[in-house]
């Protein structure tokens, strides 16, 4: 089961403050769908201004990134620049 870490604000709004969750999914899209089933509305919230880090690699435009059974998937604020 992949380990998913939600941003604190999202965890508080949707998951009773719990940031760490175990989810089974083969890619980030499937993972977000699985989260949506548990926490309705979270998919829309995560699609706004969020990047995702899968095993340390940050993806700003995430969609179909592979998630392995032992992956760590972290949602972060999207990073802009100047």
């Amino acid at each position: 089961m992949a380990k998913v870490v939600l941003p604190l604000e999202v965890a508080r709004a949707f998951a009773d403050g719990e940031t760490d969750h175990a989810v089974e999914a083969r890619d980030v899209r499937a993972l977000v769908r699985a989260l949506e089933e548990r926490f309705p509305g979270i998919a829309e919230r995560l699609s706004r201004g969020t990047a995702v880090a899968v095993d340390g690699e940050i993806y700003q435009d995430w969609f179909l990134e592979e998630v392995r059974p032992d992956s760590e998937v972290r949602f972060l604020p999207a990073i802009e620049g100047g």
Partner: peptide
């Protein structure tokens, strides 16, 4: 209306 996928 927000730009989807980008920073806020």
């Amino acid at each position: 209306d927000k730009a989807v996928g980008e920073v806020v």
